[in-house]
């Protein structure tokens, strides 16, 4: 059979990109190769002796491979590797750095729901779920993965532009002594102290306090 010469340029920037522990291997095509490059992927659990091929990512022409299922145990750490093929030639295997799902994932902002009375607003925050194999699968909140998870909450009075900041551990917050019939906008961020992780801020959720019936 044809002899494979591994002189093809290597895939570049091979790395895990992880959001809420949806762990996707990504890479850039080898320099100067153009169309027609195919790839195969393997992964390994750190400290365990063997590389495991990913059949669904064999002879693919895309430059990513979802390894969430294979790396779902966040008490383990992983490596992954990619090899490129073109016209009977191949590249070297190019590896990621060691991937620790627990510390190397990014976290989405929390979901925010707000309600109001005449002089207060109530905020309920929901942490994102950890990636799961199928929608029917059991849900795991990132709160269970990171027991020290906290929320930073910003509340803005749209009229006066005055802003308050709160840092809370539980997921509900009532902001009292507000002005009736005034718009307030809420945005929230997830913050884990150790390992050090924080989400971006959610978009703003605005609500108006009600009319003061006693006035």
């Amino acid at each position: 059979s044809g002899q494979l010469y591994c002189s093809l340029p290597n895939p570049r920037n091979v790395r895990f990109e992880s959001i809420n522990m949806k762990n996707v291997l990504r890479w850039s095509a080898p320099e100067g190769t153009g169309e027609g490059v195919l790839y195969k992927v393997k992964y390994s659990v750190y400290g365990v002796g063997k590389w495991i091929r990913k059949p669904e990512c064999r002879n693919i022409n895309r430059t990513w491979c979802d390894l969430s299922s294979e790396t779902s145990d966040y008490e383990e750490q992983y490596y992954a590797s990619v090899k490129a093929f073109l016209n009977g030639m191949c590249s070297d295997w190019m590896e990621t750095t060691r991937f620790n799902p627990l510390t190397d994932t990014k976290i989405d902002p929390p979901m925010v729901s707000v309600s109001s009375t005449d002089k207060s607003i109530s905020i309920i925050l929901t942490a994102p779920e950890k990636w799961k194999r199928s929608s029917e699968g059991e849900s795991t909140s990132l709160l269970q993965v990171y027991p020290g998870l906290q929320y930073n909450v910003s509340v803005l009075n749209k009229k006066t532009k005055k802003r308050w900041w709160f840092s809370i551990s539980n997921n509900t917050l009532v902001v009292p002594w507000l002005e009736p019939e005034t718009a307030y906008c809420v945005s929230a961020q997830i913050y884990v102290t150790t390992p050090l992780l924080h989400s971006g801020f959610s978009k703003e959720y605005c609500i108006a306090t009600l009319k003061d019936e006693t006035a």
């Binding site: 390994s44 750190y46 400290g47 365990v48 002796g49 063997k50 008490e75 383990e76 490596y79």
Partner: peptide
């Protein structure tokens, strides 16, 4: 890659 000080053989 094939050996861990802390995790081999058990986590």
């Amino acid at each position: 890659r094939t050996l861990s000080i802390l995790s081999y053989p058990d986590s």
